[in-house]
């Protein structure tokens, strides 16, 4: 892979941000946290929203609708890798709603974990959205991940994914106390001091690795001219243990089934090492 350059805290206003260069590819990711009301289908969970935008100077093809739909696809892939079933299906969320309702009111402070529910019993991977709950059914943190692709020199999905991981590590969420006053009304107190802020647990967040097929070979980290040669690509989300947490295919040609397995295996071999490297950099005292 090409060397990766990573910068943290590039946006002062954001709760967390990161800028990543890989080759000439340049991606900037900001994480914004807001107090919002939780989704009615998951009252004990925070919200998560991912958007990916392309700067029109990245490449002329991103002007107009193509950039929008392509951005949406990448955002969906990243969002699916961060948290199970936020976008996967409304039906799944709707069916899980009654089960979650039983757990409402169990957690009172921001740090209390939500009671386990059958559908999302402390998700085995991704972010634990239950920790983002402030007051069950009423308020919860909403996490907005906004990515901007400033320049496209290939491997955009991988770059956005790695930058998102770094930005999430950088994110500080203010501590919140919920107090109940004499009238029985809940009041939320926000402790704005930087020392009281807490960070997200990213240890189970997977990285998305794009494996492309060129001829009969699997290749990773293609530059823009190389990407033109690939007939199809598979974006695989892999966690630090090397387990597959999701995959989406793209490209205009089909892939043979055996090739598909070879592609996922390549991603599984690559991702844990990459994950450790990024984490080691992020936790190094020099930062």
């Amino acid at each position: 892979m090409r060397p990766i350059e990573l910068e943290l805290g590039v946006i002062a206003q954001a709760a967390g941000s990161a800028r990543l260069h890989i080759g000439a590819t340049d991606v900037i990711v900001g994480v914004k946290v807001e107090v919002a009301s939780p989704s009615p289908f998951a009252p004990t969970q925070g919200r998560l929203g991912v958007t990916v935008e392309f700067s029109p100077c990245a490449s002329p093809v991103y002007q107009g609708r193509f950039g929008e739909t392509y951005g949406e696809q990448i955002a969906a892939a990243i969002e699916a890798s961060l948290a199970p079933s936020t976008r996967a299906g409304g039906a799944a969320a709707a069916a899980a709603a009654p089960a979650n309702g039983g757990a409402a009111g169990a957690s009172t402070s921001a740090t209390a974990t939500a009671a386990p529910t059958p559908s999302a019993s402390g998700p085995s991977w991704g972010l634990d959205l239950g920790k983002l709950c402030i007051s069950a059914g009423k308020t919860a943190w909403a996490l907005y991940v906004d990515a901007l692709v400033l320049n496209d020199d290939g491997n955009v999905v991988g770059a956005v994914s790695a930058a998102t991981l770094a930005a999430l590590v950088d994110t500080r969420i203010p501590k919140v106390e919920v107090t109940t006053d004499a009238a029985g009304e809940e009041e939320i107190e926000l402790d704005d001091s930087p020392g009281a802020a807490w960070r997200l647990d990213v240890s189970r967040v997977p990285l998305v690795v794009t494996v492309a097929q060129v001829g009969s070979q699997c290749v990773v980290d293609l530059a823009a001219p190389e990407e033109r040669c690939s007939s199809s690509a598979l974006h695989v989300a892999v966690n630090r243990a090397g387990q597959v947490c999701g995959a989406t295919s793209s490209g205009r040609a089909g892939v043979e089934a055996s090739m598909l397995l070879a592609m996922t295996e390549t991603a599984q071999r690559l991702a844990p090492g990459l994950w450790e490297q990024i984490m080691r950099f992020l936790q190094s005292p020099a930062r």
Binding site: G89, A247, T248, S249, A253
Partner: peptide, 29 residues
């Protein structure tokens, strides 16, 4: 589908044995 732990959707051209769409959700061994 609501109770699933993981899932996938696949579209394939069976005569050529070529997969045209694969989308995987959730964790798989």
């Amino acid at each position: 589908a609501a109770a699933e732990e993981a899932g996938l959707v696949l579209a394939v051209m069976p005569q050529l044995n070529e997969v045209t769409l694969l989308s995987v959700r959730g964790r798989w061994a």
